[in-house]
Structure formats: C-alpha cells, structure tokens
Design a protein around this nucleic acid. Structure first.
Lengths: 143, 143
DNA sequence: ATGCAGACTTACGTTTACGTCAACGTAACG
DNA sequence: CGTTACGTTGACGTAAACGTAAGTCTGCAT
C-alpha cells in the first residue's frame, strides 16, 4: 500500500511515529502549519493523549502537499489529489472520481511541462541578451 | 527591443492600443485585476483623458504575469523578473540585479522541471495502479 | 438635451494560508 | 516540588490578490 508515497530515505526513518517538532525540523514547516493541515483534513496524525503522532502516511502526504504548493496548487486542489495517491478501496465511486481527476491532472501537468520548457528557453535567451547588453555597457563606460 | 515579449499571433493585433474591456476579453481577466496590476506597477497603460490604453508592451507583460502565476510565483516575484525581460538600459545597477536574479531563477526553474518530470512519472504510475484496482473491483462486483 | 453604457476612483469586504499571542496541560529533570 | 521545555486549544491578526459596491464622470446615440 501507498507504494507511491514511499521514498528512498525512509529506510533511515526507524521511528514509526514522529512528534510535531521532529516533523517541523524534517520538513521545514511550523507547528501551526501542521495543525492547520490537520484541520483542513490533509493530515491525520494519531494521538497519544493529547499529543499528535505523525505516521509514515502523514509524512508521505506532507511531501506531496509541499510539492503541490511549489507548483501553485491550492490546498483544496491538493486535498482532492491526495485521494488518488492514497485511495480508499472501500469507496468505489470516490476512487473513480479520483481516477478521472488524476487523468485530467496528468494532461494539465504535461501542458505545464511544455510551458515550463518554453519559459526556460525564453529565460535563457533573455539572460544571453542581458549579458550582451551588460558587456556593451561595460565597454562604453571604459572609454 | 522586447524581442522576448513578442508573440506569433501579434500580427493579428492591428490595434496598437487596447481598451480595458478588450484586454479583459483577450486575456480572461477582470478590470479590477488590470487596475490592480497597474497599482502594483506591473503594467503601465497610457491614458487618453482618464481612460486606460494598454500597449503591446502591457500585453506582453500581462502574458508573462499570468504565466508566472500559473507556476506559483507571487506578483512581487514577477515584478522583479519583468525587469529582466524589459530592461531599463539607463539603469546599470538595476540591470545587473535583474541579471543575477534571472540566473537564480533559471536554476530554480530547472530544478522545477526535474521535479515536474518526477511528478508526472509518479502520477502515471498511480493512474496505472488505480486502473488495475478499479478493474479488479469491477470483476469482483460481477461475481 | 438627455439618458445610458462603460470607465473611473475610493473604500471596504473576502478568501487563502498561515502568524502570533494567551492560557493551559504535562512530563521530565534537578 | 518547582521550573523549564514542549505540546495543546482557541482566538484574533495579517499579507496577498483580488471582489464588490457606491458614487462620479463621460462620450455618444436618440
């Protein structure tokens, strides 16, 4: 289960559970953020008494959340997507919705990839152009 | 000038100036958004009396703004980058800052490209897996 | 001349994604 | 047994990116 949520460095992670502080240090987020994500039902840490215990599943989800954010997805967008990476096999209709949604996302992401490629090419060209302009300016100033 | 800001379809754009409504229709934004971008010094429409007239330069900048937003950049990030795409040759220090900033962005974008590649691969794998799960579920239900 | 569609300014409202106290619980340490 | 460190729940605050409503102006068609 959660095959896609696994990561290579997980073999280092001997602890099954992590406290909120360990999570913060490991993923560079604040406690507030983790509690906020829990409130928004993006994470589901267990409890020992009143304290949160973050599982492997939570860690995997958090990685995906942070990833999504870097690409401009809203938390609500991400919440939808998480259902795909972490399906509830008891709920067929939900799985199918997640599946359809995932296919749409794939199209979207591939379009983004193309656009990103264009942006990079573009930026490179502008950097070359800028370098030339700056070089000219240097020479002019030297006279 | 503004070589990188040109686009292929521009030859269709006979009008040098566009009204705010034309802009809204063309780029699917609201008037509020355009005025907001002007207030934030991302766009610099000219004025006929009190009314805004958006130039080719504004249109090129707007495209870049919308692009940047799709990739999760803040408007402030974007404002900085626009200086690179639209340099002020009277201002050497600003050009150099823009140049340095642009180089950093390039590194950033190339990292994003790699991550995006990983995300796509990942999502595809999950979709295949999901397809399998759904197929199994269908069969089970058929018995 | 007038009315009305659009554009303009000003200003307050809204949503997202947290930040920042305040007040309290609890567990370990000396 | 006190205090120090870390964790918890509200509750209010904030920055970014606009939305929205109110009131004004303005060009032009009737």
């Amino acid at each position: 289960m959660y095959a896609a949520l696994d990561e290579k460095e997980d073999f280092l992670m001997t602890e099954t559970y992590m406290t909120i502080r360990e999570m913060c240090d490991a993923y560079d987020v604040t406690p507030r953020t983790l509690r906020f994500y829990e409130a928004k039902e993006l994470l589901f840490p267990e409890r020992r008494g009143t304290k949160r215990l973050f599982t492997r599943r939570d860690r995997a989800r958090l990685k995906l959340i942070l990833r999504g954010k870097r690409f401009g997805f809203s938390l609500e967008d991400i919440r939808q997507l998480l259902d795909l990476y972490d399906p509830d096999q008891q709920n067929l209709p939900q799985m199918q919705r997640a599946f359809e949604l995932g296919k749409e996302r794939l199209v979207d992401l591939e379009a983004r990839r193309a656009e990103l490629e264009a942006i990079i090419t573009d930026l490179k060209a502008n950097l070359d152009w800028g370098a030339k302009l700056l070089a000219d300016a240097q020479k002019t100033a030297a006279e």
